[in-house]
């Protein structure tokens, strides 16, 4: 983005408006971060409904204490809140079910960089997908975004299941090159089951 022409909204000005009880700006910030934070929490909690509750409670508290908040960056503030809340939640769960299992301190390793907001991710992925060869894009889209089974896609496009699989693997190969910088390489070996 060319920074000088576009006047960027700074976190500071957003926070100032929220401090002045501007609910419109609050809603804007909410819409911008909410889904990203829910997915972020969900990776730790593994329960979308609980994750939504956690993120909503963070925003409620954010609004209620708006006048006294000292925040530099909204992104790191929300990420920190979600982490803390998730850890609390896991501890509570473990206290509840401690009987018979041994208590274990689980502190998930997640960084601020792992937070994608919906807009950012959509923008990135849409552009990457748009560059795929047409047939490849069509198959990949149907599989990933329309939740179609391989057999359904083969049926619909009148191609073999094997061709569908080949196209998806081709898409991943191309996307890998485009998106390699964004794949956070937490190097883990996933054992196959």
């Amino acid at each position: 983005m060319q920074g000088d022409e576009k006047q960027l909204i700074t976190d500071q000005s957003l926070i100032e408006s929220i401090k002045k009880s501007n609910q419109g700006v609050f809603e804007l910030v909410f819409n911008f971060y909410y889904s990203g934070l829910v997915v972020f929490a969900d990776r730790i909690i593994k329960n979308t409904a609980v994750s939504e509750d956690i993120v909503q409670s963070i925003f409620l508290k954010f609004w209620e204490s708006r006048e006294t908040l000292e925040i530099r960056s909204l992104r790191s503030y929300f990420v920190q809140c979600v982490k803390n809340k998730c850890i609390d939640h896991i501890r509570n769960q473990q206290v509840k079910y401690r009987f018979g299992t041994h208590y274990q301190e689980t502190v998930p390793v997640f960084q601020e960089d792992d937070l994608w907001t919906k807009n950012e991710l959509a923008h990135l992925l849409e552009i990457a997908i748009a560059d795929l060869p047409p047939r490849c894009r069509e198959v990949f889209w149907m599989s990933r975004y329309e939740n179609k089974k391989i057999a359904d896609i083969a049926d619909k496009l009148n191609i073999s299941k094997r061709t569908v699989e080949t196209q998806i693997s081709k898409a991943l190969k191309i996307l890998r090159v485009k998106l390699i910088d964004y794949i956070s390489v937490i190097f883990l070996y996933f054992f196959l089951k």
């Binding site: 997915v39 919906k118 996933f190």
Partner: peptide, 16 residues
């Protein structure tokens, strides 16, 4: 694991 992370990116998007 990189391919898996790439896949996760799309899963994340879908979830959002």
């Amino acid at each position: 694991s990189e391919q898996k992370a790439l896949w996760e990116l799309f899963e994340t998007h879908k979830k959002m």
